[in-house]
Nucleic acid binder design. Structure first.
Lengths: 228, 228
DNA sequence: ACCTGAACACCGTTCAAGT
DNA sequence: ACCTGAACACCGTTCAAGT
């Protein structure tokens, strides 16, 4: 009649939170293999449940990956918030955020690609995408870094309006996004020059390509091509 | 004894160029489905050969996708060359190239993601990647657009050196790459505002974020999030 | 040379049960 | 409720053969 519920490891009926366990396993496997091509069955194996158990928590492999992606956005947002926490100067805040953003991506390329790679984007137009709100939380940090005065003098003006700020955000985000992905995909490198490149790009962005691009560190471009 | 080789459709022993046929089928399927998750077997079916025939021409699904990616780079390079052909002003050339680049990506997101999505990037460090030279040909167009005077006055200076130009290229390319992918992944939009956004970003990039970002068209940001 | 059919070890996903 | 085993229709890839 005794159940012996507390001390020994039971085989059947474990896992209080399989949902969480699966997502964490997925994050591990993603980091290790740097690929989303793992199978649900492998995850189940590593989590110690039958190949079928995950379907109680996720309708789909896609849905699991969406959950992983959402966590990716949270992690990146946390990094960005952390990096800017104690900085006052708008320029410093923006630079710190850019560095956090780029290094976050370069640190776990597969996760960054999953978040932005459109694996979960298209499909049916109307369907709400689960990680979308997580993406918006992250974007909000960029918005605040820009609109809290990052643009310097213009931001104090009365003529500044939301559309102008939207423009700045778009420039900033797409610039960092592009740099991150070129680094991640090894079209530019090496990634240990990452901070230097980020700083240079940031400076060029703020002050204008024509006037201010500083000399780049050498060996920035991956290559050379085979025979030329 | 007659072979009847010319007029009738034979069943056995077709395809003078199965390699090409497979790649073209892959491009079709990629465009239609906007996903790289089609199977080799499906390609073989559509090309009218056994599921096994492709392996005579490609060691791997990866190798096939690399060939498709290479064609993607060629197509994009052609677009960019075409777009700038009859323009003289560096500013116009750069803008035209940016537009061609972005619209090329937005036109076939799955192909663009395949080209840049790192599907073929990582793996073994040393291994030469087949599409890499194609990517370099495309990059050469960007290089020429920048260094042929696109930067205006600075480019005439004796103080201009290759490292400076590298910096400009990095800014330009990563900016366009990022914008393209934010559009493609619907984090910013709608894509019919693409040209306008491109022009604005380009202007911001050339003249500096602080001074020159013009007002953005409305409705640029996808959203809003669910409950906020 | 170029293509085929059968076979292997895997998938994602479903379903009728078990505790 | 939560988990399982068996089953289905598919993969990518390999191999011994056919023309």
């Amino acid at each position: 009649m005794d159940k012996d519920i507390s001390t020994k490891e039971q085989r059947p009926y474990h896992h209080g939170d399989l949902h969480r366990a699966i997502v964490e396993t997925a994050l591990e496997v993603l980091s290790e293999s740097q690929s989303t091509e793992f199978s649900l069955r492998e995850l189940a194996r590593r989590a110690g449940v039958s190949h079928n158990a995950p379907y109680k928590h996720f309708a789909d492999k896609r849905e699991l990956l969406a959950a992983v992606s959402a966590i990716g956005f949270e992690l990146l947002a946390k990094r960005m918030a952390e990096a800017t926490k104690e900085l006052d100067s708008p320029r410093q805040r923006l630079a710190a955020m850019a560095r956090a953003y780029v290094s976050g991506g370069v640190n776990n390329p597969a996760l960054y690609r999953l978040m932005f790679g459109g694996y979960l984007a298209g499909q049916d137009e109307g369907r709400p995408v689960i990680e979308r709100t997580a993406a918006y939380n992250m974007k909000a940090l960029i918005v605040s870094a820009i609109s809290d005065g990052a643009l310097g003098r213009r931001i104090e003006d009365t003529e500044v309006n939301t559309r102008t700020i939207d423009g700045a955000i778009l420039v900033f985000w797409s610039q960092m996004h592009g740099l991150t992905l070129l680094l991640v995909d090894r079209l530019v490198g090496p990634s240990n020059k990452m901070e230097e490149l980020t700083e240079n790009v940031l400076q060029g962005m703020l002050e204008g390509l024509v006037n201010s691009i500083p000399a780049m560190p050498e060996g920035v471009w991956v290559g050379p091509p085979q025979a030329g």
